[in-house]
Nucleic acid binder design. Structure first.
Lengths: 242, 242
DNA sequence: CGATATCAATCATCAGACGTTTGATCCAAC
DNA sequence: GTTGGATCAAACGTCTGATGATTGATATCG
């Protein structure tokens, strides 16, 4: 295994952690394998031993590796990874946003988000509804290809998840945010028209506003079904391009 | 604010992180407040600056705090925390396993776990089913008050979540494991008899085995409803004791 | 009064040393 | 020959003191 680094590190510890992390989530470094010694890694990334140690600690906190004296640092099995961690997601998406990943993500979204919308429809406060409406209005009035549009999209979904008042459901909000932001180009390339986007979000919002839990649930399912199709075609385009 | 530590640190960096982390999740340190300087913290925990720095980095990786030159280290808002992180959960459970926490947890479980069981019923391989059965058999044949019983219980729920083959749903498995392990005493104290436990798990397992998605879903909902009631009465007992 | 330059507080990184853990090896006793 | 323990060394873990980098605050000058 060649440990020399192609991409030059940006921030010293975080950059090294990102480089190593990418190799791990991409499968370039398989679980169970042992990393080189701390000193060697430090040298190859052109950082001090201490910074390298911090980089490894970072990966360790995300469950990607595990260190012990004499045994060295080994890559932990995938089941141990913090798969909802922001960095892990970003590394995974940028390395291999393949079809299986998209399918898994949307399967989870279909389970979690419509139910969350139903909860919000029942128990949401005025402020939460206002926040959702603000996000929707922004989405409806900006160019679908603009960064503001994707920001509003993210805000819409996060407002619903956070609006449940449930910290465990809310934990999914950053995941959606990361995915939508990263998949921005892919999705918008795949579907330049976007006619369905605004009406489908409107249906979700209006159901929530009138306290219609079942309506919100259904509208959200429809929204996700279409959204997944777009994402999948985007992935297909990328796969062909690669 | 008195920064001196009651509990003496165990492992140098992790111990300090745990002590600080507990204070943050317990609300003892409110978001937005600034922590003392690195050197002062290090002195109060009787560790070196380096170890203290690592402790803070650990909390930083979990989203609890954020450091910057000149500004110091500040506590981040709750919405930024990695609420599914093992340590954060443990700290939160041990500090305040209050009713709201239990309600949120089971609300999320009711959304995620029955659907996961339904997925497993449809798509599970022989090995996955065998693993679930192994866990169930262990649960059925051991003393409900034994550590083996709770281990089997955790294994049962984790086997289902992992059996979906969906990495995002599987991400909830450690959460369930942490909760069940930590809540062990509470639950078992509240319900010494446990007659309902085995039959309800059996119902879930058998539905999965015969590929009955709807049956698995329903059986799991019933299981969780009873389980939440037990947990809530356990929390009530603890609240009264405190 | 406002814009800019300076300052200083605090975290970030470095280098070198020493401590700690633990797998591996060797040797002795049975 | 096998087994058990003592020794060794390789790797991570921690410490110390110094230096660099960043940025909020302040003072100065136009």
């Amino acid at each position: 295994m060649d440990w020399r680094e192609g991409e030059s590190g940006t921030l010293r510890p975080a950059g090294a952690a990102a480089a190593l992390g990418r190799r791990i989530v991409s499968g370039n470094l398989i679980p169970g394998s042992t990393l080189p010694r701390l000193e060697q890694l430090a040298e190859q990334f052109s950082i001090s031993r201490l910074s390298m140690r911090e980089a490894i600690k970072l990966l360790s906190a995300k469950g990607l590796v595990s260190s012990a004296p004499r045994r060295g640092t080994i890559v932990r099995p995938r089941s141990e990874w913090s798969r909802l961690d922001h960095d892990v997601l970003v590394w995974q998406i940028s390395e291999q946003p393949n079809a299986a990943f998209v399918r898994s993500l949307f399967e989870a979204r279909v389970i979690i988000e419509p139910e969350s919308a139903a909860l919000v429809a029942i128990r949401a406060t005025e402020e939460v509804i206002a926040e959702i409406e603000r996000a929707f209005q922004s989405m409806a009035t900006t160019d679908p290809r603009s960064p503001e549009s994707i920001e509003a999209d993210v805000a819409f979904h996060q407002a619903i998840l956070n609006g449940t008042g449930n910290e465990f459901l809310a934990a999914f909000a950053p995941v959606i945010g990361t995915w939508l932001t990263k998949a921005f180009r892919v999705q918008r390339i795949a579907e330049p028209a976007q006619e369905h986007f605004v009406p489908q979000h409107r249906a979700v919002f209006e159901a929530i506003k009138r306290g219609d839990a079942e309506g919100a649930r259904l509208a959200f399912r429809i929204l996700l079904t279409r959204s997944e199709a777009d994402a999948m075609s985007g992935v297909r385009i990328m796969d062909e391009g690669a």
